[in-house]
Design a binder for these strands. Structure first.
Length: 269
DNA sequence: AGGGCAACCCGGACGC
DNA sequence: TGCGTCCGGGTTGCCC
């Protein structure tokens, strides 16, 4: 499911495609995906220029010239496609933003949404999110302060958006593997070296995954060769039974805190 | 505080 | 091809 690297990739690519362009048409096929009446929604969005696209946690923010913001969360299975009508994947489209004869399709929005909000409302909406793990200000000291008194498991802590923002089920496993630590390990039982290692793995894995365009393999547009290249770099996620890249042992799949979890029982401790 | 769990939602995958 | 069934999974909220 789309997490920080996927949303960051979307941000970069969409900026190139629709940054500075004007939304000519809006099509709402699923009213539950928006937050106000469709006619009001269209009123606020149509004929507006996209001034900037920003990512916060797993959200994308489309800043419009009238000051309103389109706040997107893809939740589970949501994805986007940009292009001409004949290029779009054969999937149900919940919302469509048009830019002349090119369209931005929002697909698989089941629990996901695209809300139109004032800047103040967006701020309130995002107020409980923890720090951005790739932010330059997210230092080792910040991290050590953050995990002080934390007694939960590594995995549940990493996916907690109030603790750190943008990490989900996939990257929590990737980070745990990279740090040689089991996802079930308790934060407060890690020694100093392991805490430093965990911090470094958070930074490394998220950075690398973003460089490779995340792991979701659906291209954002025709001839998009950026999106999803991390898919074949993944260490453990969805690799049950395959050999561990470090020690060769078979990757284990298990349920932890009602989430599917992948790890190597030989070289993670 | 942290763990457990239900509810939200429905398209797509899968079985026959 | 066609129809019925089931499941995924981030987030919220509630309880213990």
């Amino acid at each position: 499911m789309p997490e920080l690297p996927e949303m960051e990739t979307y941000k970069t690519l969409l900026h190139q495609k629709i940054g500075g362009r004007t939304i000519t048409d809006v099509l709402i096929n699923r009213e539950k995906s928006i937050n106000i009446r469709p006619d009001e929604f269209i009123n606020r969005v149509q004929n507006q220029e996209i001034k900037a696209i920003e990512r916060r946690a797993k959200h994308l923010l489309f800043h419009l010239e009238n000051g309103y913001v389109l706040l997107l969360h893809l939740m589970l299975g949501g994805l986007m496609f940009y292009g001409k009508e004949e290029e779009k994947p054969d999937r149900t489209v919940q919302i469509q933003l048009s830019f002349g004869d090119q369209h931005l399709y929002f697909i698989g929005l089941r629990l996901g949404y695209l809300h139109i909000l004032s800047q103040k409302e967006v701020e309130q909406e995002l107020t409980d999110l923890g720090p951005e793990p790739l932010d330059v200000n997210f230092s080792l000291d910040t991290f050590l302060n953050l995990i002080e008194d934390r007694r939960g498991r590594i995995k549940t802590t990493l996916v907690n958006q109030e603790f750190l923002s943008g990490i989900g089920n996939c990257y929590s496993d990737e980070i745990a593997w990279h740090s040689h630590l089991l996802p079930e390990r308790k934060m407060n039982e890690l020694n100093d070296n392991q805490k430093v290692q965990l911090y470094q793995s958070i930074r490394f894995v998220l950075h690398q995954a973003t460089q490779y365009g995340g792991y979701m393999d659906m291209a954002l547009f025709k001839e998009d060769n950026k999106t999803g290249n991390y898919n074949n770099k993944m260490y453990v996620y969805d690799r049950e039974g395959e050999g561990c890249q470090r020690c060769g042992a078979a990757i284990i799949k298990e349920e932890l805190s009602s989430r599917k979890t992948f790890y190597c029982k030989e070289c993670q401790t």
